[in-house]
């Protein structure tokens, strides 16, 4: 699945902020880490802010912070803010001009269904926890390699 650039940055920025709750993170920090222009990032943050996922504070010490519930917000929730045309339209199979095109659309719909279910089941907190778990494993492996 290939996401648009804005969608990818929005997910990365949200995860970054959600992994540091109660912290004001300068937009410049996010822009630098993920290699995105501040102008582009500002547009992404505006959309996230309208959805009450992040909050921006201006002035000295200002920045953005995560204000959503990381255990409830899923990847699907964020992707849908930026992209709503990646799912095969529900009536497309019935409206297909030929039997083979209907069958093709049915298969594509099958893929969409699995994709949507996967994205709806992955919360921001799951990504953060799994990343921490993977990092812990890496450190343990490095330690055990160093000891042997």
């Amino acid at each position: 699945m290939k996401l648009q650039q804005a969608t990818r940055y929005s997910i990365l920025a949200t995860l970054h902020m959600a992994s540091r709750p109660n912290e004001q993170i300068p937009a410049s920090e996010l822009a630098e880490i993920y290699g995105v222009s501040q102008h582009h990032l500002a547009k992404v943050l505006r959309t996230l802010s309208r959805a009450r996922i992040v909050e921006s504070t201006r002035g000295a010490g200002g920045g953005c912070s995560f204000i959503g519930d990381a255990r409830k917000i899923t990847l699907y929730d964020i992707i849908r803010l930026f992209e709503d045309d990646w799912l095969t339209p529900p009536n497309s199979v019935e409206e297909a001009p030929t039997d083979v095109s209907a069958e093709l659309l049915r298969v594509l719909g099958e893929v969409d269904r699995i994709t949507a279910a996967t994205l709806q089941s992955v919360t921001l907190q799951t990504i953060i926890n799994n990343a921490e778990r993977a990092a812990r494993r890496r450190r343990q492996n490095q330690t055990s390699l160093g000891e042997s």
């Binding site: 899923t74 269904r113 699995i114 279910a117 996967t118 709806q120 089941s121 992955v122 919360t123 907190q125 799951t126 926890n129 799994n130 778990r133």
Partner: peptide, 18 residues
């Protein structure tokens, strides 16, 4: 079930994936 998003989310929280 593919539509049981909350339960799927629970198992993912435990560390399960496809």
């Amino acid at each position: 079930n593919i539509d049981e998003h909350a339960l799927m989310s629970f198992f993912r929280t435990q560390g399960m994936s496809a």
